[in-house]
Design a protein around this nucleic acid. Structure first.
Lengths: 220, 220
DNA sequence: CTGCATCCACTTTGATACTG
DNA sequence: CAGTATCAAAGTGGATGCAG
């Protein structure tokens, strides 16, 4: 393994370089999950639903060597290895969200066997956030879908979102009722909200605000 | 060929969908070149510098089936096949430019053997365009580098750019002098301009405007 | 000449099993 | 938990063939 011969495109070009670094299969999905929060190897494995373990190991090494991912030894109580994005890795977020927005317009109906991961939902939330619509808004939402909790906090036109309860007391808690077996996709969640299939706790008017600030992708 | 079994990620997620459609090797570089203008098969082959012909054929079919690329029979004088982006394909541009911007920050020095294609340079120009800096500016530039001509027209804060002479009389023509054998990369061109290694014809003050509107990627 | 298709060596991926 | 080992199947890269 002495040779560091990465297969490249032979072009001195930003796009080609990006594809050399994160263009291989599964790489951007790993980054996506790490954008939500640092993760253990096994968490990545289950969160990526179908990634072969040797591919995950290989990608993590490549991403680490590219300076995108950092391998950390977990601190005090929970020993073990944790993978986190470096600042360079985090700077991929705008590009990743842009791609996700485009892909969302190309999403048809879910195929049998498709799954939705909480990470995917969180990133879709970030992707569909419209800061122009959020100017002057300050609010904290907490969304419950089955056993998953996601929060979204808007302040000064900027969004903070992630898994788990809101870091501040939420202004509105939205509990979404999905049909049995229905995928908890971003689309499905927004649809349920529009159709009123939700239980609200808090400032109910903030549901409309939420639906205005988080758009639904146009497309197919 | 009966089975339309594309290898997918099994996730109902915008990013995963995007990667299924344009995530395979060479796909986004093909889209990049088509974003500059429609192309013949052979033009793509030479413009992509190193793509195997069977991979190009396969990708074009996949992209066509995905509704991203359109196969057209060329009109009057020049018979033959021309590949062009559909509106869906063109809507990839923001995501592609965003990725290219990130990749540009990760570009080190050119490797021996690296080449720069005119398409790469044009797309880098678009990627590094700062509309915020261009507000109120209206100007047309024409850039000559060796035997390649590129134009950039800014009007109402919007950019139009492509290969060949400007569609209107340029306000400033910049002829860049590169060292022998030096790669005509976006970086090298901007550097030459900053260092005054250029020949100007027209409103010379527009060189500074150009350099303000088209930034150099920060990074390594 | 353009626009591919075919063939083949090589590499990567996916699935599964196994270990410190 | 955090990977490595193994192997079949699929994909890629390079060369060449060939019809319109």
């Amino acid at each position: 393994m002495g040779s560091v011969k990465r297969r490249d495109f032979g072009q001195y070009c930003g796009l080609a370089r990006a594809l050399e670094l994160v263009g291989e299969r599964w790489a951007l999905l790993i980054v996506r999950n790490l954008l939500v929060r640092p993760r253990r190897y096994t968490e990545l494995q289950t969160g990526l639903a179908g990634i072969p373990t040797n591919v995950l190991a290989t990608r993590l090494k490549e991403l680490e060597q590219a300076g995108i991912v950092e391998r950390q030894v977990a601190p005090a109580p929970a020993r073990g290895v944790v993978y986190a994005l470096t600042p360079v890795g985090q700077s991929l977020e705008p590009a990743l969200l842009s791609l996700a927005r485009w892909g969302a317009t190309q999403l048809g109906d879910p195929q049998p066997g498709d799954v939705v991961t909480p990470e995917g939902a969180v990133l879709n939330l970030r992707a569909q956030f419209q800061s122009s619509q959020a100017a002057g808004t300050t609010a904290a939402w907490e969304i419950h879908v089955r056993d998953v909790v996601v929060h979204a906090v808007v302040a000064d036109g900027a969004l903070t979102t992630g898994l788990g309860p809101a870091p501040v007391e939420p202004d509105l808690t939205i509990t979404v009722a999905l049909a049995d077996g229905e995928l908890a996709s971003y689309r499905a969640i927004i649809s349920a909200m529009r159709d009123g299939l939700v239980e609200l706790k808090g400032r109910r008017k903030l549901l409309d605000t939420f639906l205005r600030v988080f758009t639904v992708p146009r497309g197919a």
